[in-house]
């Protein structure tokens, strides 16, 4: 199986802090991978590096064999990588539908086509009924779903989801998990950051664990949750199973 995305020795140093430290992993096409780790582990920074929002200090990001480190975010998106923002960023003076249309304009200049795609994306995330609402009328979980719809409208090959299920009730997140499985069956590759382990276990075929910017584990969810290094990172030094 070929890797769709390959991250090699990725490093990002901020002043006085290495947020991502020599991280390598690869994503298999059509699979769902979870990126987990305690708060401040460097997960969002990792997304920003892949999506072109930040320049890496060192290391490589290869997507379908092309090197991405020097590409601006709009080019990365147009190559087929869409991301959501952990802190949601709706276009506040545009309706829900119009927000979802923007992504479609990365591959079409036809307004009708963009509108159809936007409806489809909203349908996928369960927001079609609120298409004409203003974004400030949405609840936070709905805004997270709007982030996902916006990203889906770009017709990505790889989708980066940063805590989109935060704040959802278990029944609602189960619905989203179903959606992710269906998208993956249709060939979409997904990398998601998620704090709720139950969801990670249900959704991901592979888990990558970050701690203080470094990768401390990688493997099947069932393996990772029993890994002593992972348990220690989450529960503090001195814990032993």
């Amino acid at each position: 199986m070929t890797a769709l995305l390959e991250v090699k020795n990725l490093t990002k140093a901020f002043v006085g802090l290495v947020a991502v430290n020599d991280v390598s992993f690869s994503l298999q096409a059509g699979r769902i991978t979870a990126l987990i780790g305690p708060n401040g582990a460097g997960k969002t920074t990792c997304f920003n590096l892949v999506a072109g929002a930040l320049r890496p200090t060192a290391g490589q990001v290869l997507f379908e064999g092309c090197s991405l480190e020097r590409e601006p975010p709009e080019a990365v998106c147009r190559m087929g990588i869409a991301r959501t923002f952990q802190i949601v960023r709706p276009m506040k003076d545009m309706s829900v539908l119009e927000n979802a249309m923007v992504g479609a304009f990365s591959w079409s200049t036809n307004v009708k086509e963009a509108r159809d795609k936007a409806y489809e994306s909203l349908e996928t995330v369960g927001l079609a009924g609120k298409a004409n609402a203003r974004t400030d009328q949405l609840t936070l979980p709905d805004r997270k779903m709007l982030e996902m719809a916006k990203a889906l409208s770009t017709r990505p090959k790889l989708l980066l989801l940063d805590e989109v299920m935060a704040g959802l009730r278990p029944t609602e997140s189960a619905g989203v998990v179903g959606v992710l499985h269906r998208l993956a069956e249709d060939g979409l590759t997904i990398l998601l950051v998620e704090h709720v382990m139950r969801i990670v276990m249900e959704v991901a075929s592979t888990v990558v664990v970050l701690h203080h910017g470094a990768k401390i584990a990688e493997g099947k969810p069932s393996e990772v949750v029993t890994d002593p290094a992972v348990l220690e990172s989450y529960l503090g030094a001195g814990f032993h199973a």
Binding site: E74, P90, F105
Partner: peptide
Amino acid sequence: SRSYWGYVWRAMRDDDEAARALGVRT
């Protein structure tokens, strides 16, 4: 404002970074 230009212009007006993440060459 109802054409392709209008949509991507309003997107970059509201949030430049978010628009770029959606492929808008702002």
